[in-house]
Design a protein around this nucleic acid. Structure first.
Length: 406
RNA sequence: GGGUAGGUGCCCGAGUGGUUAAAGGGAACGGACUGUAAAUCCGUCGCCGUAGGCUACGAUGGUUCGAAUCCAUCCCUGCCCA
């Protein structure tokens, strides 16, 4: 113990920008700080990008501070333009509500809400009731357009145009911070580094309206060493929902991160002590695979639980070490009535997006059935392909599927 | 409202009457190499398929033997002016 959480966050690589490092550090020492992070309900699951924020939140909670998890039932109706080149899709009220519920469930898995150790709020509760004129007079007067226009987060939009609707996002988020400060004495807002403009807007609004000193802190975004965003898979985002990204795929994602990113990920995404993180991160060449295994296991454990993490790990090791006969690969039921073409079956079950893709894969030697390369595009499945009712299909090098005859 | 530049495949972006399923790049996918890494190299990259066909260049109509390319109307976006 003893280390200031602020330093913990710095040491683990979370901190990108802070409004006032010295005062915030002091604040952490002198009181239980209520702090908030907002999550806009843009989809029905959180993803890897949110996870890093949740980890930061968890570190602070472990240090005795109180997280306020805000789901953006109000701000979600507007859509944050920060750093984006395109306008966000407008969501229906039903979608927003549904997504908020999904977020709440997921957040509850990472943050301890027992005994008022954390608070969950929805900004729709206050934003949706606001009266336009009142808000303009009360809050709008505190912002100058000149300053807003200078904000970094809109730069991307100068080419494409920014709607007035989106331009207001910053005002709403700033208002959230003011509201949370009034309701809960919330003194700190955190968020991804892309939120910096919105966060300082809130800090300034609090000062103007309440003459209150509050703070802002941004987390580094999860990027690869080459600067590209991390947490993207072929199918899009790396979701925390097991239905959208299976624990196995989730495990594999981290198992395969670049060498250069392993240490950073261990620090940000696991609770391992830093000396262990550094030890693992220092491993070289093939050795670093050990670090990746630890990373994948630890992250999967936090997100999906120890059971699932073990299963994912075992499945992966079985598949990659020898001939895989693991139970945990995606299973496809096949009703053999004679004449089923392998490609058709796999296409129908979404393994290929189209038959053309499957045909191509076979032509390029990328499809394996029970450890034998499939060379015939029109290969027809027979009972002989199934051992004990199942056949193993491998797509490319790493993707396995089990066909099960019924 | 006026002027002007645009809307092309997952994304960016060339193309301006036939040889264009549409250059180039990125992403993605497969192969080689490896450490289930990166980098690199090779291949693929609308759908169905033997040929061949079908669907596609904002939308709808039209001109033409033939249109992403020409015309009309409409929708959307940027910029400038009001």
């Amino acid at each position: 113990m003893g280390q200031n959480v602020y330093d913990t966050l710095v040491e683990r690589g979370f901190v990108a920008q802070c409004t006032n490092e010295e005062e915030l550090r002091k604040l952490f020492e002198t009181e239980k700080v209520k702090f908030y992070i907002g999550f806009d309900p843009t989809a029905d699951s959180l993803h890897a990008g949110h996870f890093i924020a949740l980890m930061a939140m968890a570190h602070l909670q472990r240090a005795g501070h109180v997280p306020i998890c805000l789901v953006g039932g109000g701000t979600g109706t507007v859509g944050d333009p920060s750093g984006r080149t395109d306008m966000r899709k407008m969501l229906t009220d039903e979608d927003i509500e549904h997504n908020c519920e999904c977020f709440k469930k997921q957040i509850s898995r990472f943050i301890d809400f027992s005994d008022n150790k954390a608070i969950m709020v929805n900004n729709g509760d206050w934003l949706r009731k606001l009266n336009y004129i009142d808000l303009l007079r009360d809050v709008g007067a505190c912002f100058t357009v000149n300053r807003m226009l200078a904000a970094e987060c809109y730069k991307q939009r100068w080419e494409k145009g920014l709607t007035f609707l989106e331009f207001n996002y910053m005002v709403m988020q700033a208002y959230d911070f003011l509201e949370l400060n009034r309701r809960y004495d919330c003194k700190l807002e955190m968020g991804g580094d892309d939120q910096w403009s919105n966060i300082i807007a809130g800090v300034e609004l609090n000062r103007r309206k309440s003459n209150t000193a509050v703070y802002g802190l941004t987390n580094k975004l999860l990027t690869k060493s080459d600067g590209k965003k991390m947490g993207k898979t072929a199918g899009g985002a790396l979701w925390l929902d097991a239905e959208k990204t299976s624990p196995y795929d989730f495990y594999q994602y981290w198992r395969n991160v670049d060498d250069a990113d392993v240490e950073k990920c261990l620090a940000l995404l696991t609770f391992l002590p830093m000396d262990e993180v550094r030890r693992l991160g220092a491993l070289k060449d093939a050795e670093i695979n050990e670090a990746k295994k630890v990373l994948a296991f630890e992250v999967t454990k936090i997100v999906h639980g120890e059971e699932e993490a073990k299963k994912a790990k075992e499945a992966a090791e079985a598949l990659f070490s020898g001939q895989g006969s693991a139970e945990d690969m995606p299973t496809i039921d096949v009703a053999l009535s004679g004449g089923e073409k392998l490609i058709d079956v796999l296409t129908q079950n979404g393994v290929f997006a189209s038959k053309g893709e499957g045909r191509r894969l076979v032509q390029q030697n990328g499809l394996t059935l029970n450890d034998e390369k499939v060379t015939d595009v029109d290969y027809v499945l027979t009972a002989a392909d199934f051992n004990d009712g199942s056949a193993i299909v491998r797509k490319g090098k790493k993707k396995y599927y089990r066909l099960q005859s019924k």
